[in-house]
């Protein structure tokens, strides 16, 4: 069966390995986020056929990172094969990352989103120790990289720390030129597909510009749905081989899952 047929049947993907590199658990004071707990996430994954998600905790990004990271690690411990956890870091605090990563697989990598922590830049001094740690241990780092300035900063970080692996969230659709430049300059950068609203043709444009190996499925679940982004991939003009790379194979290799 063609991959696009799964959409029209409303069936979960089968025999296709699917990794969502960018989701959130936890609620929000800013807007309603239905189904933001681990059980609801896994329920949705089963509904559409996602094998693995990589999650950070939304409230932990905005305020209490300690509470948020524990919540995210608990989600992983409840569903160790389905939910992987990013530890949110905050440049206003000092983190003991050994407590998260040494001799433990509770966390997969780091989530960096200083935009909501006083609109600090991604390349700010307070985040350098965490990039150094990621570089030392080859950890993945998920950036919130929406604006062109964020993508430029993220590119500078990726160049400086070549052993770390960086996923640029959102940027392929919101800062296209800068994202293409990042992929050309840095082998350790992957772009995700996370966006609430864009046009048909945007994904094909991105793949044509950076190559299909540099794009990975990401959705922002539970900040919003995942099925519309799945539809953009499955109903695109790309071949099923390329769709499978974006849906999971690229992330599997990049994140060493």
């Amino acid at each position: 069966m063609d991959l696009k047929e799964y959409v029209f049947l409303g069936k979960e993907l089968k025999d296709t390995y699917v990794v969502d590199v960018h989701i959130h658990v936890g609620g929000s004071t800013r807007y309603q986020k239905p189904g933001n707990d681990a059980d609801s996430v896994v329920y949705t994954m089963d509904r559409v056929g996602v094998d693995v998600v990589c999650a950070s905790c939304s409230p932990g990004a905005y305020c209490d990172w300690k509470w948020g990271n524990e919540m995210c690690a608990d989600a992983h411990e409840k569903y160790p094969d389905r939910i992987k956890a990013y530890a949110v870091v905050n440049p206003h605090y000092t983190f003991d990352l050994d407590a998260y990563f040494a001799n433990s697989d509770r966390f997969l990598g780091l989530k960096v989103i200083p935009f909501v922590q006083g609109t600090l830049p991604i390349d700010c001094p307070g985040l350098q120790p965490y990039y150094e740690y990621a570089d030392k241990y080859g950890l993945p780092v998920l950036f919130h990289a929406w604006m062109a300035s964020e993508v430029k900063d993220a590119t500078a970080v990726a160049k400086r720390y070549p052993n770390a692996r960086f996923i640029f969230g959102h940027s392929g659709f919101t800062a296209f030129e800068e994202s293409v430049a990042a992929c050309k300059q840095c082998d350790n950068v992957l772009l995700d597909t996370t966006i609430s609203d864009t046009y048909d043709g945007a994904l094909e444009r991105l793949v044509n510009a950076v190559g299909v190996d540099r794009v990975a499925f990401g959705t922002d679940l539970t900040a919003f749905e995942c099925s519309h982004i799945l539809g953009r991939i499955l109903l695109s003009r790309l071949s099923d081989t390329d769709k499978e790379k974006i849906l999971g194979l690229n992330a599997k290799q990049f994140l060493k899952l």
Binding site: V7, F8, L9, G10, R47, V48, D197, T198, Y199, D200, E225, S227, H228, I229, L230, G231, R232, L234, L235, S236
Partner: peptide, 15 residues
């Protein structure tokens, strides 16, 4: 043509 038909259709099919 500014919005996405592929996304809109999947949103209903997978509901």
């Amino acid at each position: 043509p500014m919005g996405s038909a592929t996304a809109a259709v999947a949103l209903i099919c997978y509901a």
